[in-house]
Amino acid sequence: MLNYVWIGMIGIGILVAVGNDVSDEIRNPYRNGTVLEASFDVQKNNASLTPTYDGEFVVPAKYIADIYGVAAPSAEIHQSARLILPASGVGTLEMAIGEGSPSIWKTMAVGYGTKDKLAGRVVAAKLSDDRKHIRVSMVLDKVSYVKIRAVTKAAIDYADIAVTLSLGLIGVMALWLGVMKVAEVAGLLKVLTKLLTPVTRQLFPDVPPDHPAVGAMIMNVAANMLGLNNAATPLGLKAMEELNKINPKAGTATNAMCTFLVINTAGLTILPATAIAMRAAAGSADPGIIIGTSIFGAGCATVTGLIAVKLLQRLPKYKKELEVDNG
């Protein structure tokens, strides 16, 4: 199934991106080639061979709405910009896109590849008599293939993120694997394992009840329950490693592994620490109000997940994959 989902995400993603870009070419939502007319407030006139002005490009909110056919921004747009008007040839206007920019321009800047800059060529410019304002007519540089560019960037960025995430695990992994090793050698895990044998025997019938994997799994679930994500992952990986020691077919997940994974993905916890922290940060009057509802939600996930995993493992297709080839 993972094969299909994986290739599906990539294939559908790229197809949709191409489709969106083709539709953009036809609908022209970024109004490529349209002349924008607005006022430029001069703040600084850099005296040099080429007249260069630093200042603000001022665009009425309604103008944005009319041109692009989007909802009008809440206020007049003041865009810090630089205007270059050579004596001969084409002038350029470069805008810094930031927080206050209209969202359509933000999207365009991303599609443009710079993210914080939009530029265009000046068709006409007329300086006012007090030399404080310039009436500018300009055409923004053509924006196209926005989604394809975004997808390309996402693919590369996410590959980077994957490496950062993996490497970021090294520290906590080393810490908890060290602690676990001491607990294992000291026989502490055996004690825990014995206590919970009635439960673990039900959930993992293929794993001997006194196997070290059981101890590691119990520790992982305990860490998850307490909302200790940092500790839960290393403990879970330790459990996986132990489970893999009794895996008859390397590279294929056993029933016990799948069951253990589902317990983890369901994420049952008595302390949804991240969600509570974000609620507090957002100024909630009662950040912890979701503890009960989260336990219920994750409880539903855990129960249905366990039922699903136990039913699915009986399907002939999945049973067959577990058989060790003798050929």
Partner: peptide, 17 residues
């Protein structure tokens, strides 16, 4: 979790998850 032990065939873990 599966990467750490080199599991490539994840069987029914994804649908159940």
């Amino acid at each position: 979790y599966f990467g750490a032990v080199g599991i490539k065939n994840t069987r029914h873990a994804l649908p159940a998850g």
